[in-house]
């Protein structure tokens, strides 16, 4: 087990290193920040000074080495635009995104999985057909459109929920969170719902197809022949058997939601990472972009490791096979 974790951590380091090169080279190609940073009527002397100040006069590999060296000492660099530490900047925005996506993904699982199990358990019932049909909608209707509709209905027409912002926050461990206040929840609910619909459909369909398959196996027949009740069969047999694909998708979705919640964040003016990255791309704020993309890859690596560890917990065959 320990050797497995060590091996995975080693692989993760390699992935991050390769990713940092790709990101660095990619960002370099997008455009020259000098054109955005310095006003066109600045003198040649000022131009040269600014370029030297940001280290933009160095060759790319030199800039990369500088970046790596600073990274190893925990310094992600300074934003060109905000003129503050990128680490601080991201740390300010991350809790908002974290809060939104965690609530969205948990909500998606808590609602999607039971609905899916039901739809797979009674595939011919009307309720199951409705669930499956709605889940197709959840897949195919674009997130931004649903977001706009939610605002139109609940904020504009009914006027019962706010259209954007984080609302009142309360501090926990020195970090502000919305989910600790009633006003915060009012602000959270629409964007979280918007973000979770796609994932909910996915979890639901996955749970439904898994359940349908498992219900036909001899394991279930044998359990029924032993007189075990249907509720126990669903809870103790089916849920355990379908959990592995569900955990896989849960992990992937958690990662991609954290990284790419920007459509929802933009629509609901949620002050999270999504807005930060969009702003930094338009202003060619290289340090922020690089740091953000590195953070995203690190998140994916960590989540995937957790998913692999979850497999080992869920499936005893892996636990003993790896001895």
């Amino acid at each position: 087990m320990a050797s497995f974790i060590i091996r995975r951590l080693g692989q993760a380091l390699v992935v991050l290193l390769v990713m940092s090169m790709l990101v660095f080279a990619g960002v370099f190609v997008i455009g020259n920040p000098v054109d955005v940073l310095i006003s066109p009527d600045a003198t040649q002397e000022i131009r040269r000074q600014v370029i030297a100040q940001y280290g933009l006069d160095l060759p790319l590999w030199d800039q990369y080495l500088h970046f790596l060296r600073r990274l190893l000492s925990g310094d992600l660099g300074t934003s060109f635009v905000f003129n503050m530490q990128v680490g601080t900047l991201i740390a300010q925005k991350l809790p908002a995104t974290l809060e939104l996506t965690l609530i969205a993904v948990l909500f998606a699982s808590a609602v999607g999985v039971p609905l899916g199990i039901y739809a797979g358990y009674r595939p011919d019932s009307i309720a199951a057909r409705v669930i499956m049909a709605v889940s197709v909608l959840g897949f195919s209707v674009p997130t931004f459109w649903i977001g706009l509709m939610l605002i139109m209905v609940f904020a504009v027409q009914l006027g019962i929920l706010p259209a954007g912002g984080r609302g009142e926050t309360r501090t926990l461990f020195g970090v502000p969170f919305s989910f600790l206040t009633a006003d915060g929840w009012a602000h959270l609910i629409l964007p979280a719902l918007n973000l979770s619909l796609f994932k909910m459909s996915m979890m639901c369909r996955l749970a439904a197809s898994g359940t349908r398959e498992v219900m036909l196996t001899d394991t279930i027949k044998f359990a029924r022949a032993a007189g075990i009740s249907e509720a126990t069969i669903l809870r103790r047999h089916v849920l355990k058997l379908i959990s592995i694909p569900l955990v896989t998708v849960f992990g992937l979705e958690l990662g991609s939601t954290l990284a790419f919640a920007l459509v929802t964040e933009t629509i609901f003016s949620w002050p999270g990472l999504g807005k930060l990255i969009v702003d930094s791309i338009t202003s060619l704020d290289r340090p922020v972009m690089v740091a953000y993309l590195m953070l995203v890859s690190a998140l994916f690596v960590v989540i995937n490791l957790c998913v692999d560890l979850a497999y080992v917990v869920l499936d005893p065959r892996l636990r003993h096979g790896r001895r």
């Binding site: 196996t217 001899d218 394991t219 027949k221 044998f222 359990a223 029924r224 022949a225 032993a226 007189g227 075990i228 103790r236 047999h237 355990k240 058997l241 869920l314 499936d315 005893p316 065959r317």
Partner: peptide, 20 residues
Amino acid sequence: RGKDISMVFQDPMMTLNPVV
């Protein structure tokens, strides 16, 4: 079922739940 009448199946690989 299971109390008065019970059943054993062909494939013991398939009848027991591998994760319980």
